[in-house]
Amino acid sequence: MKSILVYGDSLTWGYDPAGPGRHAFHIRWPSVLEATLGAGVRVIAEGLNGRTTAYDDHTADCDRNGARLLPTLLHSHAPLDLVILMLGTNDLKAHMAGTAIAAQQGMRRLVQLIQHHAWQFDHDTPPVLIVAPPRIVETADPDFSAAYAGAVSQSAMLASLYADLADEVGAGFFDAGSVAQSSAADGIHLDADNTIAIGRGLAPMAQLMIGG
């Protein structure tokens, strides 16, 4: 059995912009990825609304700093054959880091935590697949528009920066924006068709990276 850990935010959790609420389990992209890869592959979805790569949100009701929790999850879900990281959207909030380059630096820290983790029982270090989330789009929603002021242009740079980072650290890279588009309902989240598209679009790369 191959095990894939997916580490992400509300896009991984399955936030439905039409709700607001949560997509049904079988629609969320990690579930679609598992179904597409077929028998013998388990996809562990660790999605949290508001999670950043490595930045504190002191307004939050729980710890949303991705760098703080990741080592614990690596221990609890090991052994792993692949870790997929899809984070950075929340870094672009006006009251958070606010820039694509800051998100890239946070993503770099997450990759370091995986590649230098104290793996137990002689578990091999798994490969890492960096996924750039779909671009943020303009929205008439006043709350999301204010929270993400200036983020539309910043998010347009994220895929290029993540691709450069992947080359530098020896990770895989996938641009989710190549198969999916954020909903204009809030500018951030994915409708059912687009979250399904990410799960299916990621499958060939994931299959290649886990082997078999």
Results as ranks from 00 to 15, higher is better:
residue 1 M to A: 08
residue 3 S to T: 13
residue 8 G to H: 01
residue 10 S to A: 10
residue 13 W to P: 00
residue 14 G to N: 04
residue 19 G to N: 12
residue 24 A to I: 00
residue 26 H to N: 11
residue 26 H to L: 10
residue 26 H to F: 11
residue 28 R to S: 02
residue 29 W to F: 12
residue 31 S to T: 08
residue 32 V to I: 06
residue 32 V to G: 09
residue 33 L to P: 03
residue 37 L to I: 07
residue 38 G to D: 08
residue 38 G to Q: 02
residue 39 A to M: 08
residue 40 G to I: 01
residue 41 V to L: 07
residue 41 V to R: 06
residue 42 R to Q: 13
residue 44 I to D: 08
residue 45 A to M: 06
residue 47 G to V: 10
residue 48 L to T: 04
residue 50 G to C: 04
residue 51 R to L: 02
residue 54 A to Y: 02
residue 54 A to R: 05
residue 57 D to S: 04
residue 57 D to A: 04
residue 57 D to K: 00
residue 58 H to N: 06
residue 60 A to V: 00
residue 61 D to P: 00
residue 64 R to C: 01
residue 65 N to D: 12
residue 67 A to L: 05
residue 69 L to T: 08
residue 69 L to G: 15
residue 72 T to L: 10
residue 73 L to S: 02
residue 77 H to V: 01
residue 79 P to L: 09
residue 81 D to W: 02
residue 82 L to A: 03
residue 85 L to W: 01
residue 88 G to D: 07
residue 92 L to I: 08
residue 93 K to P: 03
residue 95 H to N: 14
residue 96 M to P: 14
residue 99 T to Q: 14
residue 99 T to K: 15
residue 103 A to E: 06
residue 104 Q to V: 12
residue 105 Q to N: 15
residue 108 R to Q: 11
residue 110 L to S: 01
residue 111 V to T: 13
residue 111 V to W: 07
residue 111 V to R: 07
residue 113 L to F: 06
residue 113 L to G: 07
residue 114 I to Y: 00
residue 116 H to K: 13
residue 117 H to C: 03
residue 120 Q to P: 11
residue 120 Q to M: 10
residue 121 F to I: 05
residue 121 F to W: 09
residue 123 H to R: 02
residue 125 T to R: 04
residue 127 P to V: 04
residue 127 P to R: 03
residue 128 V to K: 00
residue 130 I to V: 09
residue 131 V to A: 04
residue 133 P to A: 13
residue 135 R to F: 13
residue 137 V to G: 13
residue 139 T to Y: 09
residue 141 D to T: 09
residue 141 D to Q: 13
residue 142 P to F: 13
residue 144 F to Q: 14
residue 144 F to M: 15
residue 145 S to A: 15
residue 147 A to W: 12
residue 149 A to Y: 09
residue 149 A to M: 11
residue 152 V to P: 02
residue 155 S to Q: 03
residue 156 A to E: 15
residue 156 A to I: 07
residue 158 L to K: 08
residue 158 L to D: 14
residue 159 A to C: 09
residue 160 S to I: 14
residue 160 S to V: 15
residue 162 Y to Q: 09
residue 165 L to T: 10
residue 171 A to H: 08
residue 172 G to W: 00
residue 173 F to Q: 05
residue 175 D to A: 07
residue 175 D to L: 04
residue 175 D to F: 04
residue 175 D to E: 11
residue 180 A to T: 06
residue 181 Q to M: 10
residue 183 S to R: 06
residue 183 S to G: 10
residue 187 G to H: 06
residue 193 D to W: 00
residue 197 A to K: 02
residue 202 L to D: 02
residue 207 Q to A: 14
residue 211 G to R: 02
residue 212 G to K: 07
